[in-house]
């Protein structure tokens, strides 16, 4: 910028133009912030609940854990209205095409939570009929561990999605990496006492 002395500068903005640019930046920023803010607090989950995790998903939606605190209580069973797919439970080979079709029908931007050990890795069902992890065939954003995960863990997964939305919200899923590999982990670090193993 040092070279850009007064005479050689091709374009000099006037005071008014300067203000408009700054203003539009500000508006952009506000718009992005507010859209992201509202988007992250109104995730509409599409519960693809197949097995045990589905019951914990119901428990998360029910009164004690109350997913409504995070604005994600509006479970819609049509994929066209949803932006967050929660894939809960093991996915059999017969179900995998159904899951893929539902994912394709969801509108951008969309996120996917793989809930539980079975959806993420196949879990205990290392058999001929179970897909060993939906992330082999679908882009997954957040993995929630557990068999089944406790409702708190699922809520942490939803919050991880919220952080994602906050950071990059306007970017739709096509521009993201395939599989973010984000795994929900306990935030509390347990400190091991010195000499505990002796």
């Amino acid at each position: 910028m040092g070279l850009a002395s007064a005479g050689s500068m091709p374009y000099q903005e006037s005071k008014e133009e300067f203000l408009t640019t700054k203003l539009s930046h500000l508006i952009d920023l506000l718009r992005k912030q507010s859209i992201n803010w509202s988007r992250k607090n109104s995730l509409w989950p599409m519960p693809f609940a197949t097995a045990c995790c589905g019951i914990e998903l119901m428990a998360t939606g029910a009164s004690r854990y109350d997913i409504a605190r995070f604005g994600a209580e509006v479970m819609r069973f049509t994929p066209r209205q949803c932006d967050l797919m929660i894939c809960a439970g093991r996915v059999a080979i017969k179900t995998m095409p159904v899951l893929q079709r539902i994912y394709m029908q969801m509108a951008e931007p969309k996120w996917v939570i793989s809930m539980g050990a079975c959806a993420s890795t196949g879990g205990v069902f290392d058999t001929y009929a179970v897909v060993q992890g939906v992330d082999q065939f679908l882009p997954v954003d957040v993995y929630v561990p557990g068999c089944p995960p406790r409702p708190e863990t699922l809520l942490e997964g939803v919050m991880a999605i919220q952080r994602l939305v906050d950071n990059e919200g306007m970017i739709n899923s096509k521009d993201r990496e395939r599989g973010l590999g984000l795994v929900v982990q306990p935030t509390v670090q347990v400190e091991v006492e010195k000499g505990a193993g002796k």
């Binding site: 058999t127 009929a129 897909v131 065939f137 679908l138 096509k174």
Partner: peptide
């Protein structure tokens, strides 16, 4: 017929044969 004893537990590769949906193709 999977419960026959000569059929392996993890199948004969059925569970790997799907199309892969990527971010680009979705």
């Amino acid at each position: 017929h999977p419960l026959r004893k000569d059929y392996p537990l993890t199948g004969r590769g059925e569970r790997e044969n799907f199309k892969v949906i990527t971010r680009e193709s979705a």
